[in-house]
Design a protein around this nucleic acid. Structure first.
Lengths: 235, 235
DNA sequence: ACAAAAGTGTTGAGAGTACACCCATGC
DNA sequence: GCATGGGTGTACTCTCAACACTTTTGT
């Protein structure tokens, strides 16, 4: 068993960095795309806003760590969110304390799923519009930027947008969500005709009262093919 | 300075995982898409093929570590390759020695750039067709699978494919590369007409002799817009 | 002349886009 | 009735995809 001992020694001879998981949590609130931030209470960047995150424990996977952080900050369970690994940030000097490598995730949460208690029981946790962000700790501005780019990109060819809505929604609400995230106006007729063709939503009983004619309620079909073939650069 | 001391203590109280960088290196050799693998010489998975990689040093970024591994195995400098972060794999039990989190990258190298010495000076480093892989150490089969999926996907909407070719190439060679990677036949006329429209290549002097009419040589325009707008799921 | 591979053009089907129009409800 | 927002249809344009055709070399 000398080989094993030698190798174990070999692994531990390298100094190890700290590894954290940060989760950019998006939701639609007040008709705006918002991200959840927490105010740091310790050095460094004391009293500066930051993306929620924490150290990865030795016995949990990265995804488990991300779900844990998510639940701690929002009270939302794993089944009710969309979570995706974003990128791993590891510049040697991104944290002044020690070498910290952070695996960033982004999450989409429907506003009605958020536990109000978890989100409001402190003044040091707050939803910010992505267009009106405070200055952020570490390289968190880069991380949030990248998350936003990825979200918009993803919205174009997949159906992740539904994760930002409650289970039942009107088509107008769906279109609003897309317009808010993408930052562009969409054509009502085309939006709906494409929805009919792609077959990703189905009508459910009930109506929502609006200023005019009541709107039908829909829900996302979980058996739906949520991805579209991308346009090829070359045929 | 007690805050600093407290926080430093706080950081180090967590046990730290090891962090490695693994690089899936792709190239086109003998008209096949191949990946470079090395045979492990130590426990665990002794004498089993694995994706090249190594520990991240405390003073280098993740990307620097990836470039370093790449240069060590192929002798190729950073400017001559396409390198992209793929995904971070961190299941607690993926390495039997200790907790190891690996940041996976994938690289595209043109066959003519590869240093033959670096690639052939040992029997324990070898190019394998991605369709005829040996069994791999750790979760490296998953990593390679994911790298291949991402490469194909990326090829559809960006111009990374050029990184697999020498500086000058014929349009037939370019089309061959695409067909090899995607695993499908493409239409010659459509392939070329789209190339003309997208304006990503330009003719250079010289011809390549073939079995029939000699083919013009082209090169990639570095000022070209290498990405195409994806088709939207919703308008 | 013929084979082989380079290189271009044509055409019908389907997707994208802009816009006009009808429908159901509250006041 | 009329304002408001839901919901549908149409017509023009552009891209996609299949395939036929012409051009230039070697033997």
């Amino acid at each position: 068993m000398s080989a094993e001992i030698t190798e174990t020694y070999d692994v531990s001879k390298y100094e190890r960095p700290s590894v954290t998981v940060d989760v950019v949590i998006f939701s639609i609130l007040d008709k705006m795309l918002k991200a959840l931030l927490i105010k740091r209470k310790v050095w460094p960047y004391k009293d500066v806003w930051a993306i929620p995150g924490g150290f990865v424990r030795m016995d949990e996977s990265l995804e488990q760590a991300a779900y844990r952080e998510l639940a701690e900050e929002t009270g939302v369970a794993g089944a009710d969110v969309y979570l995706e690994q974003l990128f791993t940030f590891g510049e040697p000097d991104r944290d002044p304390r020690t070498r910290v490598i952070t695996v960033a995730y982004f999450a989409l949460v429907s506003a009605d799923k958020i536990n109000p208690q978890a989100a409001t029981d402190a003044a040091d946790i707050e939803w910010f519009s992505v267009y009106d962000l405070p200055s952020l700790a570490f390289d968190h501005a880069d991380i949030l930027d990248y998350a936003l780019t990825r979200l918009r990109y993803k919205l174009e060819y997949s159906a992740v947008g539904f994760q930002l809505l409650p289970e039942k929604f009107t088509l107008r609400e769906l279109q609003d969500t897309y317009e808010i995230v993408l930052g562009t106006k969409l054509d009502k007729g085309n939006f709906r005709s494409k929805l009919r063709k792609t077959n990703v939503v189905e009508m459910v009983d009930g109506y929502r009262d609006t200023g005019g004619r009541p709107a039908r309620l829909y829900r996302f079909r979980d058996d739906a093919v949520a991805e579209i073939k991308t346009r090829r650069l070359f045929p």
